[in-house]
Design a protein around this nucleic acid. Structure first.
Lengths: 236, 236
DNA sequence: CCAAAAGTGTTAACTGTACACCCATGT
DNA sequence: ACATGGGTGTACAGTTAACACTTTTGG
């Protein structure tokens, strides 16, 4: 492990954790790697290189986990409690995986974590299993697995921030494919806010913002009127 | 300087900068220490102790600068560009003050700064001049002096965040004395938002929140109706 | 009585919500 | 034809913005 992460290459005591949100099957999801040999998941995270900006580090970590570039990414909170990472959890992980590192290694020290959340198009992502991961999968935000350290708190705080953002920034389009139906957009809003919205008024509200471009009709084969497909209006 | 800040006592590469907002004479102000011997101000800041939470560190720094406890304090952004602190500025400061520290001292390294903003009652604060400060004064936010590093950006970002917060959190009362007139509260809002508000509607809106307690009348000796004094309603 | 500033009543404009109906599509 | 779900017209309610009037104070 020390050979992978050399202390002089990274800033000590500082980590970046990413809450990667996706939307699939009417559910809000997050990417969580499962740690090898211990029954815990963690947030995809990493360290900041000595000459790398923190934002760039977050982008790099995200790229390593999802293969995606140019992703909507926002720093939302710093987690700086001195006891936020239970050392026993880390020890269990190291022992279970036969990893021995010096007790005074920089990896054994206290870490302050900078939390980022990313909004990605679920269909575009192929999660990458890291060196210390058994798997790396999408989990329903409402049914999170057991998480290491304070990572459940971090996800909760990210979700809170996302809800606040919905009101005054149009960011959720990053969670959808290029074109989508009004119904899909509404379901996404309902999922994030965890409350039902009126179909008719939602449609009007969205159209009134002027950021939706009606593209074409979507014929699903279902016995009903084919909905329009919309595209998020971006400057050409 | 090395004798004051021992590397093992603090987390390296990590600093906390506080934007301390106050309100006086119809102006929004911030506390800024002026550096000794160089024509620059900086933000009141400090480092995080090895076993101290980041929030606690911010509180401590604030206490050292203003003497106040239990202050409204909120972490708002991390500043993590690798080139955010111009090394020449730091060198000039050190040379001008005849401070010699090793080129590889932890203080000469790159720092990631965690930005906090504080809202304080101007009249309660007596600013404390630090060891490396020539002075420590209140400055008008609209007329900031020259600032070291990226500290002007940090103040701007803090102000933006404060404006956003105005809408959905009642925080500004921390900037006012215990009792105040409706006019003073309105002026504060106008100053932060940098736009005029209607006197009549503002009054109604504030009263409708139910958080204002009418206390007594304030006779100023002016040739007009004496305004009521209000108090921010806090649980007993 | 007048000027100045505080407080309140009233109305118009706007926004959000609910109910309705019409439209398109496949069985 | 009809069941299903998408799209839109409209009316009602609640909120916000604007104007006007009254009240209080000292000169």
């Amino acid at each position: 492990m020390d050979t992978l992460f050399k202390s002089k290459d990274y800033l000590p005591h500082l980590s970046v954790d990413c809450v990667i949100f996706g939307f699939h099957g009417h559910k809000l999801k997050v990417v969580l790697p499962k740690l090898k040999k211990v029954p815990l998941c963690s947030l995809p995270g990493g360290y900041v290189r000595a000459q790398e900006s923190v934002n760039k580090a977050a982008q790099r970590i995200l790229r390593e986990r999802t293969g995606l570039e140019n992703i909507y990414l926002e720093q939302f909170c710093v987690f700086g409690e001195s006891d936020r990472a239970d050392p026993q959890v880390l020890r269990d992980f190291l022992v279970s995986n036969n990893i021995s590192i010096a007790a005074d290694s920089w990896l054994m020290q206290r870490f302050i974590s900078i939390g980022y959340y990313a909004l990605v198009d679920f269909s575009q992502v192929t999660t990458a299993v890291g060196a210390f991961d058994e798997s790396c999968e999408w989990y329903d935000v409402q049914q999170l697995p057991d998480l290491a350290f304070d990572h459940a708190d971090i996800i909760l705080k990210a979700l809170e921030t996302l809800r606040l953002m919905l009101d005054h920034k149009l960011v959720v389009f990053n969670l959808l494919p290029d074109t989508f139906t009004m119904k899909e957009l509404q379901t996404l809003y309902e999922t994030i806010l965890d409350k039902p919205l009126r179909r008719d008024n939602f449609q009007r509200k969205m159209l009134s913002t002027g950021i939706l471009q009606r593209v074409e009709k979507k014929f699903t084969g279902a016995a009903n009127k084919a909905p329009y497909l919309y595209r998020f209006w971006t400057m050409p």
